[in-house]
Each structure stands twice: as structure tokens, then as C-alpha cells.
Design a binder for these strands. Sequence first.
DNA 1: ATGTGCATGTAACTGGTTACATGATTCG
DNA 2: CGAATCATGTAACCAGTTACATGCACAT
Lengths: 193, 193
Amino acid sequence: VSSRTVSFRHVILGLLSQQPMSGYDIKHFLKNLDWLVGSFSFGSIYPALHALLTDSLVTVDVIYHQDKPPKKIYSITEAGKQVLREWIGQPAVPSASLKAFLMRLMLASNFSHAGLIAYLEQRRSQVKVQHTALEQVTEDQDETTDLGQRLALDYGLAVANAEVAWLDRTLERLSEQPLPMEVTQGNDTTPTV
Amino acid sequence: VSSRTVSFRHVILGLLSQQPMSGYDIKHFLKNLDWLVGSFSFGSIYPALHALLTDSLVTVDVIYHQDKPPKKIYSITEAGKQVLREWIGQPAVPSASLKAFLMRLMLASNFSHAGLIAYLEQRRSQVKVQHTALEQVTEDQDETTDLGQRLALDYGLAVANAEVAWLDRTLERLSEQPLPMEVTQGNDTTPTV
DNA sequence: ATGTGCATGTAACTGGTTACATGATTCG
DNA sequence: CGAATCATGTAACCAGTTACATGCACAT
């Protein structure tokens, strides 16, 4: 069982936990979200899938179409789900990038409702810390400070504000209606986001 | 001249173009901005510096303190400035991440005023494209879509909106006053939430 | 005919991290 | 006395990219 380090393997696992997919499917799914979470090349997807296979965290079903190349549909196993859950369980690194945060967020169905809220709250406090840190740096500027740095700092503050605002809004929404979409059951009464 | 690929070397070069620094200084400078542009470990900074040296894009001055380890202050050379200018000259990749965008922005003093404005405008249109793309994906959701994905999408839209708002504000400011040095003065925007 | 989409894979490379080694000084 | 800060460096490792190889179907 070799996949100890991080993330991207888990993202694949997370996608597969939502529905079985082929490597090709994964690529396309991620392409839409490139800007948010980044996409990956086939050169990393296929090997990752093979590794997950040998670790028995996923299984394959090969589907032969006539006149089309066969498709390998990967599905997550119980062991895979377990690994995912464990990963979700451990706390997020402080000062994780937006990307890293969103990657994990995308696996929300593997969080408990309480876990999800905790995760968002965690993020909120981290962003606030970053925000004050940036404000600090901004204050330390003198007139000689490079324009680009000032702009970057200002940009950072703006994004941080937007993040906090979104998190506040969303947390409120999630606690108002404690069962956001009955994630694990089959029951949806919830108006869309 | 071997540093063709990208970024991080250029960031170092950019920092050195603002003022001479040691590897240690660079690390610390970047640490403050970790959240914005990411920081780098010594294991990549020192080798990078050595590489820049052998390419004659920087020079060193060793300063010996008594009783303190000697400090190696790196300064950018004319050749280094040239490389930077060339890098700045070429257009930004579409759909660059926030980080990549900010990295370049931090080197604004190496842009011309017009170049800077063009760069921000480029970013604005790119973010708008991403925004519409995300809206598209959002529409394509059905009720079975994973909660995490919806949240991530929503988050992305919020950030994109914030980016565009900031860019609009800033572009207006920059074109109002063609000599930008006063940026930080009247402008404590931070509309906290 | 040429290119694009479907579909899978491998090999070489590379940018960066982690961990290690060294060593003096100052703070608690 | 141990920990942190200053300060530089190397070597092993690793995740992910690029480029390559293959091959059929469908549209222009």
C-alpha cells in the first residue's frame, strides 16, 4: 500500500467514489474544473489508476465496443473508500492554497455534515489569519515598495475578503438547513445552490 | 543559458531586480507571501541561485561578518534584466492560476505602464471566460450532483467575481492616474464582508 | 487527405520537496 | 541546557509533465 503522500490520488479516488469512470472520463471531468482545481495529464492519470489498482483501492471493468477502443471503467472498492475516509479525517494543512482547499471540498460527500462544516470553519479561520498577515505586510510597506507588490497584496486582500464572505454565507446556509441534500440517502428536497 | 521553462527562476530574478538579496532573504521575503504566490524551500532556492550565477544572470558579493556566517548577496546583471524583460514580454498563458498571475504581477516594475494595464486587462478577460465556463458547468448540474462539487463551483464563481471587481477597480485607478506611485493612499478598499 | 475525438499507455525528464550536514549565536 | 535564528549547502526522492506510440471512426 504505497500511496501515502497526497492529494491527487485521493482526488481520483474521490471522483470514483461518486461514480465509476475511465481515465479518459476523469481527464475530461477535470478539464472543466481546470481553473478551480487544476487538471492532470494522461501521463499521470493512467499510472495513478494502475497504482490504485495494485493497491486494490479500485477495480476495473473493461468494456469492449466493437469498432471502438475498449474502455476501462474503474470503480472504488471498500478499501478505497476507507482510505478516502481516513484522508478526509485528518485535518487540513494550515495555509493550504485555494486549489488544495477546493480539491478537498470536492470530496464533500465523503465528509459527514458536521465534518464539512468544521472544514469550512477551519478554512475561514485560516483565511482570516492570512488576511491579517497580509494587512500587516501592507502596513509595513514604505513608499519605495514596488508597485507590483502592492497590487499583489491588494489583490490578495480582495480575494481573502471574498473567501470569508462566501464562507460566512455558506456556513449560515448549511446550518440553517442541517440536511443540505441528504447526501448519503436518495432523497433530495433541497433547492439548488 | 539554460533556464527556458518557467516562473520560479524568474520570480527570483524579479526580486533581485528590485534589490540585491541573499538566498536566505529570498526565503523570508516569500514566506510572507506564501499564501499568495507560494514559498520555496532552500533546497530549490540555493541551486536556482547557483544556476543563475553560472548563466551570468546574477552576481554574488560575499559579506563576511565576524562571528556570523558569511552572507552571499546576489545582484541581477544586465543580462538578467534582459531575460526578465523578455519573459515579461511574452503573453501570459490563458487560464493561468491565481498564483501564476500574482507571481507575474509582482514583477510589475519590469512592465511598462501600458504593459501592466494590458496584463491586467488580459487577466480580466480570462477570468470572465472562466466565469462563464463555470456558470455553464453550474447549469449542467442535475439534482444528483455532489454537494461538494456544487460548493466548489459556487466558490469558484465567488472568487471570479471578486477578481473581476478588483481588476475593474484597479484598472480604473491606473488609467485615472497614469503615474501610479500613489496606489496605497486613498484606497483602503477592504470592504470587509 | 487531414484533422479531431475517442481511448490507452510508456519513457524520459524536471522542478521542487524532504531530509541531512554544518556551525556559530542568542534567547529563555 | 536546549531551542530558535542566522546561513549555506547537497543528495535522494517523487509527482507530474512532455513527448512519443498506437489505432479506429467520423467529419471537413
